[in-house]
Design a binder for these strands. Structure first.
Lengths: 226, 226
DNA sequence: CAAGATTAATCAATCGATTGATTCAGTCAA
DNA sequence: TTGACTGAATCAATCGATTGATTAATCTTG
């Protein structure tokens, strides 16, 4: 018989962070108590102050943990093509499709797979809407690669657009997807379908079609209407 | 000299509700305390229990107050045309443009005009993302006219689409606008432009163009790209 | 290598502050 | 007189934070 695992000390920190992500996502910063978080992590509430300096520090560290884990996933996509390079337009078109797919799957990470991942994205979504004073720097760093990737692709697909137009286009593309994720619970209430969306692949296809047409990319348009 | 206004007694209830909207919007349900709300309304905190039965009752009544005041504004738009009636398609096209304009101006109601209106929409936005158990019925009733208006127009503009597609299209149109409103503070941080959007009219035009193209409406497409 | 010293990690217990709620004597207009 | 309201006091509960003690791990030194 193996003895009970020695409960690696450094592991407690990590358990606290994961419990914090779950609890903050469920109840918000004010709604979540450090006692509840500690209990969830099977640790003592005093450790929140010991490891993170307090509730605020734990919150900051939880957001940092999310940011560090997610930031790398965007980088796995092939880099956007150089503007002006041969075939850049076609590559950018495919790049946009790949980006939207990655963005959706990032956001819709199934709760069954990783409860913490799902809570993490819910937490980020809430922070974007209503940033806690502590979170702004972490959040900006988290969002920047997503923004810059879309902007780089848009500069190729819409070389005529000025910077403000590019920003608006970026926000429309990301906005429909983010709103979809952030309001999923409400949408399910509204539509009366508790397991909407049934077909994630169809949803990705929809976002791709809607966005590419919305951008005014001619290639995406002709075949869609009788 | 006129004596100080007699402070209409029934008015206290209303002052409490408005103070509640402001405070709940700023700090969330858990972050706001009834003492702070009462102080803002220049009333006694005991009146929260007296008038509304407690904090939860005040919250519910605040949401109801918002819902009752906003719901009428959608109805001022001309009704959507009958499917199949002559020129229904053109009327629906104009109807969609009017709807998007109304939706944007509703959401972006300038804080300078009515601080309470702006806070109310921020509160609704937060509730959509993370509904308080108390708010679900009020919220559904609030959102339904907005949803049904878009769906009615879409059934004319996209008669080929099945119900799930119609829902996705509706969510994409509203989503980009809602995300824009809900994340405005964050967007200003990201773009580095503290008074974005400078031009509300250009923004409305953008949402209209992006949405109509995204819908696959041929009329909206040809002229936009060189 | 072993004994002693130091540090890190954790705990139960408790702190003062604040929470939502309640009570109650008093004001004031109808 | 009655109902709407006020202001102040107070309640139990809970909050985040802190304390002092204890154990486990690591390092120092003879």
């Amino acid at each position: 018989m193996t003895p009970p695992p020695p409960e690696l000390p450094q592991d407690t920190r990590h358990r606290l962070i994961e419990a914090a992500i779950l609890t903050f996502a469920e109840k918000g910063y004010d709604g979540a108590g450090i006692r509840e978080i500690a209990q969830r992590a099977k640790a003592n509430s005093a450790l929140v102050t010991y490891h993170f300096g307090g509730k605020e520090g734990l919150y900051r560290e939880a957001l940092r943990h999310i940011s560090a884990r997610k930031a790398s996933e965007v980088a796995t996509l092939p880099p956007p093509p150089e503007p002006g390079s041969p075939g850049a337009r076609e590559v950018a078109l495919q790049g946009m499709k790949a980006y939207i797919r990655a963005f959706v799957t990032d956001l819709m990470s199934c709760p069954a797979e990783s409860e913490v991942d799902a809570a993490a994205m819910a937490l980020i979504g809430r922070e974007i809407q209503m940033p806690h004073p502590v979170s702004a720097p972490v959040l900006l760093e988290f969002a920047r690669p997503y923004m810059e990737r879309v902007l780089a692709l848009l500069r190729i697909l819409r070389p005529d657009a000025d910077p403000e137009t590019l920003l608006r286009l970026t926000l429309s593309i990301q906005g429909q997807i983010l709103h979809f994720r952030n309001s999923l619970g409400f949408i399910r209430l509204l539509s009366g379908d508790p397991d909407f969306p049934k077909d994630l692949e169809a949803l990705i296809q929809h976002f791709t079609d809607f966005s590419l047409r919305g951008l005014g990319v001619p290639e995406a348009f002709p075949q869609t209407r009788p």
